[in-house]
Write a protein that binds this DNA or RNA. Sequence first.
DNA 1: TGAAGAATCGCACGATCGGTCGTAGCATCG
DNA 2: CGATGCTACGACCGATCGTGCGATTCTTCA
Lengths: 212, 212
Amino acid sequence: MSIRPATRTTTRAAPQPKAERTKERVLREALSLASRVGFTGLTFGTLAEQAGISKSGLFAHFDSKEDLQIQTLHVAEQMFVERVLSPAVKEPRGVSRLKRLFDGWMDWIHSGTVPRGDILTAAAFEFDDAPDGPMRAAVVEGHGKMHGTIERMARQSIEEGQFSRKLDPAQFAFEFLGIVHAHHHVRRLLRTDLHARRARAAFERLLDSSHP
Amino acid sequence: MSIRPATRTTTRAAPQPKAERTKERVLREALSLASRVGFTGLTFGTLAEQAGISKSGLFAHFDSKEDLQIQTLHVAEQMFVERVLSPAVKEPRGVSRLKRLFDGWMDWIHSGTVPRGDILTAAAFEFDDAPDGPMRAAVVEGHGKMHGTIERMARQSIEEGQFSRKLDPAQFAFEFLGIVHAHHHVRRLLRTDLHARRARAAFERLLDSSHP
DNA sequence: TGAAGAATCGCACGATCGGTCGTAGCATCG
DNA sequence: CGATGCTACGACCGATCGTGCGATTCTTCA
């Protein structure tokens, strides 16, 4: 929200509070809309309608649809950090931190508040076969960061003696993300929460076979 | 290919070979196109261009875009059965059959021929958040069949004494499909084949922890 | 070969998309 | 308070989408 648009290259003026307030409101609506219809379905027309603003009025805040998508994605990432990552990092390093991350992620997926569902994983699914572009790059970068974070946590678990020294942290991260993504996918495809326990069981199995 | 369109409800006439030849060719092009741009990107305009036929000429074979998508999907499913499922079922029941299924699936994903990549998993990803409709229903049905098949193979592995009696076949199927889907996703997102070995390692780990 | 009917085409439609532009109103600040 | 310039608006554009329709060409078979 505090990101200044790249177009504001002229003598940086003092913040225009009015603009920032509307932009914040619009981005909130954009997040809600994108979590229902995806980032591709995040249309200027529908967003304008939902935010109670004119279509062309949106262009005062976003240079293009791509710009709108990326800014909305960043808001979502910020929320993910606040709600999932930060609480996890407060746990002591090692397995308990990994467990907290997984639990928090599950809660994030099933959260009743905006954004509904795991909008970041949804974005990754949506843009994995998209042509190159800033949005795809942003999604790939987010995935890389997440993979790195989990890998690091796995490595720390080895150092703490909770994971076997033979464990490959990158392999662990791949499987961790795989479980989350598989759950996300089945949940959306079958429109049921029944598979949360399957994901948990898979995670437990992953932890079991990682122990020394 | 042999599917007679539902519209042909009048006194079933003798087959019109010309139409069937064209339709077969068009469906081949549709499969190629859909594996590159997805089923949503499978457009009458671009398909017409690629197949060397006029846009309106396509409507002689397909009632609507949905009809086109579903028929293309069925062709892909048929190919999957021929190339992956049938060879696997030729193996003796039990673990070897499961291994053959997994290996065949991996080969199918990396196959250089049309369709490129796992178009069925791609369809599942594409329509998991789509509004209800015939195409989504077809995708869900395909997923259900696949899940059931793997579940059955896991159950047979238990009966053969190769899997532990405590194993939950449905959990096994969830994780099997999860590995394939995770691989598919990462492969598309990062545009690299490096993660095939990660998927294989995950599958080996799944088998290991399923043994009695 | 010629008639019947299927296969295909050209053309146009209404909707929706991302995006532009000129302008009016209003918030901000000297 | 009044000038400045940001914010928001309505109208509009060109492209593309799925689809309908009447005309035309080609296949098939008696």
